[in-house]
Amino acid sequence: MTTIDFQLERDAFGRLNLTDAAGTVHHNVSPVRAFPVQAPDEGLALVNGDGKEVAWIDRLDDLPPAVAGLVREELSGREFMPEIARIIDVTSFATPCTWTVETNRGRTEFVLRGEEDIRRIGPEALLVSDTHGIHFLIRDQYALDKHSKKILDRFM
């Protein structure tokens, strides 16, 4: 665990406030990930209400547990990117079509407009966008079950 040169705490309204080494208080700060998919726990900025960076975190795991907990709590309330664990069914292999998937947040359905809404974001990872702009992450397409891979291959 590294030492940090700031303090982070919630105020009475539930907002994060950061006090830097000089004693300046930055109200209502928000954590922003530099690499939300490839390295979600590395490279985070704490930005103020104007979007100006007031602190940098190299690795979330290097923070004291209480501070890391506040940052993780704030991130979980702001981010929504379900991870697809299994593709259960698709209504058609032509787009648009409805996908039924199992995610880390439960079972859901979404409409895929076209194959271009499935994007590679690394050697194994894919980002699937639905018609509402919600992004679903497939962290490792090669780790999916055989049925899911077969469906996915039809769209790639």
Rank of each mutant, 00 (worst) to 15 (best):
T100L: 03
V54S: 07
P40S: 04
M81D: 00
L126F: 06
I118G: 07
G43M: 08
A21Q: 13
G106W: 07
L60A: 10
A68P: 01
F155K: 00
E73V: 05
E79M: 05
G114V: 05
A34K: 15
L152P: 02
G51S: 10
I134S: 00
P82C: 10
L8E: 02
D62S: 12
E74H: 11
A55N: 03
G23D: 06
R154C: 11
I4Q: 02
D11T: 00
T95A: 15
G122F: 09
N48Q: 11
L60M: 12
D11P: 00
A34T: 12
V101D: 02
A143L: 11
L60R: 11
D153F: 12
A143I: 04
V101Q: 03
N28A: 15
D117I: 08
N28D: 15
E53V: 14
S92R: 12
P96R: 14
A143P: 05
F80P: 01
V128T: 04
D20E: 01
H26W: 15
Q7G: 05
H27Q: 14
D61H: 10
A34G: 08
T2I: 12
I84F: 08
G114I: 04
D130I: 09
V37N: 03
L70W: 03
A39E: 13
F35S: 15
F6H: 01
H27F: 11
E42D: 12
D5P: 13
E109I: 04
N28I: 11
R119C: 03
L18E: 01
S30A: 15
N104M: 10
L127P: 00
L152K: 05
R154S: 14
P36N: 06
Y142W: 08
L8R: 02
I138P: 01
G51W: 06
T108Y: 10
D117R: 14
P65D: 13
A21N: 09
L18V: 03
F136S: 05
I151M: 09
L8S: 01
P31G: 10
E74F: 04
D58P: 05
L70R: 03
S148F: 09
E116C: 04
R78H: 09
K146G: 01
G69I: 09
L112R: 00
P40V: 03
S76P: 02
R78D: 07
L152Y: 06
E102I: 06
L70K: 03
I84C: 05
K149F: 10
C97N: 15
R105Y: 13
H26V: 11
V128H: 02
T3C: 06
L46A: 08
V29L: 06
G14L: 09
